[in-house]
């Protein structure tokens, strides 16, 4: 019985590690991570998972580094969903889908796009952006200032 629990705990630990796809590196102002219906206050060093939603307040901004060295940041009053992320550290094959519902986003693409141009996509309410290795910014809605 004790062993079963230990094995289950180890398996869970391994699984949760595998779910971590990136890490929050910068936080300013109010920033939350929405995960499975919960609102978690974002802090530097916090892990990010697939299906997380980054939500910033009018004074907020957040930056995330992903496993493949893709960098993303969200500016004030932003809702950014991490829809899908996969990355094979050996082959560098992966897929990265996000959607910017409102606000601003900056992207520096990483190894996924280097290996497979177009494997990163950013959706907005009206568009889909296919990324072929680059840095770019996106805004949905009027400028706040």
């Amino acid at each position: 019985m004790r062993w079963t629990i230990a094995i289950a705990a180890a398996a869970f630990a391994a699984a949760s590690y595998a779910n971590d796809i990136g890490q929050i590196k910068t936080v300013s102002g109010t920033v939350h991570v929405e995960r499975e219906g919960q609102q978690l206050a974002a802090t530097p060093g916090m892990n990010v998972r697939q299906s997380d939603k980054l939500v910033t307040g009018s004074d907020g901004a957040v930056g995330v580094t992903f496993l493949d060295n893709s960098l993303l940041s969200a500016g004030p009053s932003t809702v950014l969903a991490i829809d899908r992320y996969s990355f094979d550290t050996t082959t560098h094959v992966g897929q990265f889908d996000t959607s910017l519902q409102k606000g601003t986003l900056a992207v520096v693409s990483g190894k996924i796009v280097k290996q497979t141009p177009g494997a990163m996509r950013v959706r907005t309410p009206a568009s889909v952006m296919g990324v072929r290795g680059t840095e770019f910014v996106v805004r949905v809605g009027e400028a706040a200032n």
């Binding site: 141009p117 907005t124 309410p125 009206a126 568009s127 952006m129 296919g130 840095e135 770019f136 949905v140």
Partner: peptide, 30 residues
């Protein structure tokens, strides 16, 4: 439609990549 804008930036080494923006079946290459 809510206004949207996408801008491609040069990277630190000056290299400029490509973003393909698709709207209503129309493709724009930046």
């Amino acid at each position: 439609a809510v206004p949207e804008i996408v801008v491609v930036l040069p990277s630190a080494d000056g290299h400029v990549g490509t973003v393909v923006v698709e709207r209503d079946g129309e493709k724009v290459v930046l």
